[in-house]
Design a protein around this nucleic acid. Structure first.
Length: 287
DNA sequence: AAGAGGCCCTGATAGC
DNA sequence: TGCTATCAGGGCCTCT
């Protein structure tokens, strides 16, 4: 669910809250996430100081002392909540769409600090944790993935070469983390609308200019989403914390049946399901 | 080897 | 009311 912009919003507030603090206690209530949390997970974190929280793609990276790293992937439904023990009534909500109240169920993991608790909640359990024990392994871990849209590596040469002879449709490539990292189902549709490209066009059929538009719009839309605090498509009516606003900017996502927002376009927004995922696009101006 | 599709899981909502 | 079906922002695995 959370794509790069949402994970970045979580990162920013998490970093502010826990940097330079030491983990006093680790509680795992349910080890059965996307991947099983190993039995020695707690010992890697306990009594370690947080250097900083960074991010690659949709992964949060908690930098621990001694070059240890704890990766967190939120999957589809993972959220992170911070409970301030000094003000037990109030939650700082680093998730971008839940209500400010801590959910009662599915709080699978807790990191306790002196006056603070970080709680990982994930109903569907598609998220996961991963411990990485040195800097080289961290680099290796993300080397297998494509560049982020913001990276200089995500340029015209890279994309044009990558798409040669590729018979898969362009939308699938935007979701393919080996091609580009951080884009998910919402922003893929939005990027292709902005680029006036039909999501089901085969990648090898894209000309240079279309490739360039995909590159530029990927950067632009993700940047704007971060500035707007991410997208909150569910449950955001009661948020007092970091409420996202980018969902107000959706041009096609969840806009099935609406008129195309492009001036002078008379098209209708259509939704198409392929392999259980929805794609939204204008039938008229996306060629 | 690339590409299509199934599957992991729970919850919210729609339709009968 | 209570059942069933469908869909949700991800990504790994298997089959062809």
């Amino acid at each position: 669910m959370p794509e790069l912009p949402e994970v970045e919003i979580v990162r920013q507030s998490l970093h502010k809250k826990i940097k330079k603090k030491s983990i006093k206690k680790v509680i795992i209530r349910n080890r059965n996430l996307r991947f099983k949390i190993p039995g020695d997970f707690e010992s890697f974190l306990k009594d370690k100081k947080i250097i900083k929280v960074s991010r690659f793609s949709k992964y949060l990276i908690i930098h621990l002392q001694n070059e240890y790293y704890c990766l967190i992937h939120l999957g589809m439904s993972g959220t992170i909540h911070i409970l301030d023990k000094k003000k037990p009534q109030k939650f700082t909500n680093t998730s971008y769409y839940h209500s400010p109240f801590l959910p009662e169920k599915h709080n699978h993991a807790e990191l306790e600090f002196d006056n603070l608790k970080v709680i990982y909640n994930d109903p569907r359990r598609f998220g996961f944790f991963e411990i990485i024990k040195n800097h080289q392994d961290l680099e290796k871990r993300f080397k297998l993935m494509g560049p982020e849209p913001f990276s200089d590596k995500f340029n015209l040469n890279y994309v044009v070469n990558y798409f040669k002879n590729k018979n898969k449709d362009i939308k699938s490539f935007l979701l393919d983390q080996k091609f580009v990292s951080g884009i998910g189902n919402i922003y893929a549709s939005e990027i292709l609308f902005a680029s006036k490209i039909n999501p089901f066009k085969k990648a090898k059929r894209l000309n240079k200019n279309e490739c360039l538009n995909v590159i530029l719009n990927s950067k632009k839309i993700l940047e704007q989403a971060i500035i707007k605090g991410g997208s909150s498509i569910r449950d955001f009516k009661d948020i007092t914390g970091n409420k996202g606003n980018f969902q107000k900017e959706f041009k096609v996502y969840q806009q099935e049946g609406a008129n195309c927002k492009r001036t002078n376009c008379k098209g209708i927004i259509k939704k198409k399901m392929t392999s259980n995922r929805s794609t939204f696009f204008c039938v008229s101006c996306q060629k």
